[in-house]
Design a protein around this nucleic acid. Sequence first.
RNA 1: GGCCCCGUGGUGUAGCUGGCCUAACACGCCACCCUGUCAAGGUGGAGAUCGGCGGUUCGAAUCCGCUCGGGGUCGCCA
Length: 595
Amino acid sequence: MCGTVTAGDEGQRLTVAGWVNHRRDHGGLTFIDLRDHTGVVQLVFNPATSPAAHEIAERCRLEWVLKVDGLVGRRPPGSENPNLPTGEVELTVEGCEVLGQAEAMPMGVSDELAADERVRLQYRYLDLRRPRMQRNLRARHRFIKSLRDVADELGFIEIETPTMIPSTPEGARDFIVPSRMWPGHVWALPQSPQIYKQLCMVGGLDRYFQIARCWRDEDLRADRQFEFTQLDLEMSFVEEDEVFLVLEEMISRAFATAFDIPVSTPWPRLPFSEAMRRFGSDKPDTRFGHELEDVSDIFRASSFRVFRGALDQGGSVQALRVQAGAELTRGELEGEWLQVARTYGAVGLAYMWRRSGVYEGAIAKFLSEEEQEALTARLGLQDGDCVCFTAGRTQVAQTSLGAVRLHAARRFGWIPPKRFDFLWVTEFPLFEADPATGRIGSVHHPFTQPHPDDWDLVRTEPTAVRSRSYDIVCNGVELGSGSLRITNPAQQALIFEALGLSAEEAQRKFGFLMSAFRYGPPPHGGFAAGVDRMVMLGVGESTIREVIAFPKTQSGADPMTGSPTPVAPEQLAEVGLRLAKVLERGGTDHDGREG
RNA sequence: GGCCCCGUGGUGUAGCUGGCCUAACACGCCACCCUGUCAAGGUGGAGAUCGGCGGUUCGAAUCCGCUCGGGGUCGCCA
């Protein structure tokens, strides 16, 4: 291979094949850097050695595919290249064959040559030649292989579950697949193998796992594609500790094997309520401190109307010390920073600077001496600091200031490099109320066990019920979630009731699972972890598109294949469907037609 | 559905307080020169009307509106 030729091969006759990465034509002597995924090696074409090969070297262009054979030799003294692993040697070409020609490239292939992501995706097959993509996808392979190896070692077996399953209205929007044999009926692509893996437990396959492809028809993000890969697993006869142990083992070992990143275990466990209180997030970035502080008690009797008003309405006041934040300008705080807080629903972002022992800023004059002193003591504020506040409904105040905390961390460089802080976030609420309708829904899914102490609250105060669900979070990224499941029909009925599902509805939607649980279900629990996100973290990328060979754009399209494509009426007719109206989408690139 | 950023030759950028832009630079491409380079070098050349449409103006890549496309994000993602 190109990148593996070393001084040890001196005197050897070798054949290598690869792409022309670079060409330096001196008229007579011509150098070509030949590249494959292992690296590059310098080829020397000397008209005196082989006129035929040299003629090809003169003619060939970037990204042509060559096969050459020649003699490995040490480079002349002084002409070694210390920046290259193969820099001590070169291959003097004796024979050369052109295996493939390339037209002028629409984009550069080296990592240094930036290209618009749209162009990269349109020519993804060229983009994949980049060392960065090669590295990412090969690391992804090693990671998945390692997960499988460890799972196998721990007694798990990989079971394939169907990709055409019944559609359920719960959760994310389904991708649906019309059925030809059943006109007017549809299949759905799984959002996860949830139900099937639980049925595996009933089936006595006590340790199931799967590297599972999942689909969710929702808007795309940096860390979300509508087609993604999960490490999905389920275990019988376990409680939290066993599940945690297995995942810590699998993931820490796979990180070490695939990315050479040591991950110590066990991981800290942080209850949801504590995560919200300290970090203003259910996926806290714990690589740095600078935690939120609830300062409601200080302002309980304040004359500052903004704080007092929030407290009187049952909300809270949250504070964040921004160390060395005195350098922040009013424009910055009232522009960018306020925008961050507003995005998460905060009405405003209050702030003060501390300089020469006094507080400055618009709100300082509204705070009493006592309040200021209490703040100074509570937050440890010093000269040169800034302090930011949010006030209002506690959850909004926490999440918006939590977002400000992350913004501040980037602005002031609080985040230490090369750290991977894994943790469990536990005891998520079992239910949440839709703020618009007041309807109760499951936070995780309806089969999640309530915390054993909270059964009584299911009827009386459902939103206060904690669940036996848990997330893995690393560096502020949610990597996956899981729970212990309900297997007792009476308990399950109580949950459905709290969700406002009638017995008939529950039977219709989940009947087969409920039926299964009538025949000796083992207690079980499991987890699903996002493979794309884990690999993203492991290779240091900031979007999962960089670790997926052929991803979609944010608008859910593929510029390379020009898909999705308009459906042909004949295709629809075959499955018994007809369009109500052809909706055209896209401009220059889609030649869809109004119909 | 909302908010924010971006769209100039094949690629990446500059220009964008309107007229010296008949659009500049680098890489790539084409031709020629060059036997030790490695972001090789030299000489010459082709290539964009500035995403699209509309408007303001005597005049727009530069201002405004709409639209298409890319990215980030809130909602959404059991």
